[in-house]
């Protein structure tokens, strides 16, 4: 068994448990235990623990699952995207002095571009994790859909809002929207806490961070 195969298994397990709302400290605990068990036995992870989806289901049935896990997966991305979209549209909408900063079409085009970039990163991260829970195209559709909906909501609210604001006021709106965005992202966090003695190595970094580190040389 290669160390790489073991690492891949642990990453997939970690990802699936976190997605299912298992508390980050429980995830770190279990992953460290599984890693140690594999080290002791030298066995293949799939032979010893079974395929990740099946093992994860068994674990999830027994572990503390964070309440309102659906909120983290669905509502918080909305909370994050809608204020961002509203703030953006309030910023670029026709201001009180009747000067058009950015047209609605340009605003939508910007959001479409952001959606494409985020969806691309999403696909890359999922593939790096070897995660097959959702086919990539469905994942792209979900992320793009969220951004598009955020864009529509932002345009409906933000444009009207922007038209009534002075330039100074619109920065206040952007500030509040940014604070809400940061708040939603912080609330959505479920950091993995490994036992102090566990050397997480590659597991400590997200696949995205590893790619960034590798690209940075």
């Amino acid at each position: 068994m290669t160390a790489n195969r073991r690492t891949t298994y642990l990453q997939q397990l970690m990802s699936r448990l976190l997605y299912s709302g298992v508390d980050g400290s429980d995830v770190g605990d279990l992953v460290a235990e599984v890693a140690q068990h594999l080290e002791d036995t030298g066995s293949d992870p799939i032979e010893e623990f079974g395929p990740v989806p099946e093992f994860a289901v068994e674990v999830i049935a027994q572990r503390r699952v964070r309440k309102r896990a659906w909120l983290r997966r669905v509502a918080l991305p909305w909370l994050a995207i809608v204020p961002f979209a509203v703030g953006f549209n309030a910023l670029v909408a026709r201001p009180a002095d009747d000067t058009v900063f950015v047209s609605a079409t340009e605003s939508f085009a910007t959001f479409a571009f952001i959606a494409a970039v985020v969806a691309g990163i999403h696909v890359m991260v999922r593939r790096r994790r070897g995660d097959s829970r959702l086919p990539p195209l469905i994942g792209v559709a979900v992320v793009s859909g969220l951004f598009a909906a955020g864009s529509v909501a932002g345009d409906l609210i933000g444009t009207d809002l922007g038209a009534t604001l002075s330039n100074a006021q619109r920065w206040v709106v952007v500030g509040v929207a940014s604070a809400l965005l940061v708040g939603a992202l912080v609330a959505a966090r479920n950091p993995v806490k490994f036992p102090d003695s566990f050397e997480a190595g590659n597991l400590a970094y997200s696949p995205l961070m590893r790619m960034v580190r590798r690209a940075a040389g």
Binding site: L30, H37, E48, G50, E54, F55, E58, Q62, S197
Partner: peptide, 24 residues
Amino acid sequence: NGGTLYPLLARLEGESLVSGKWKP
């Protein structure tokens, strides 16, 4: 195998029948 044992230990821990602690 581990796939049977660890979910069982998690259940026993969840039911407070056993307690787990990391130590040397």
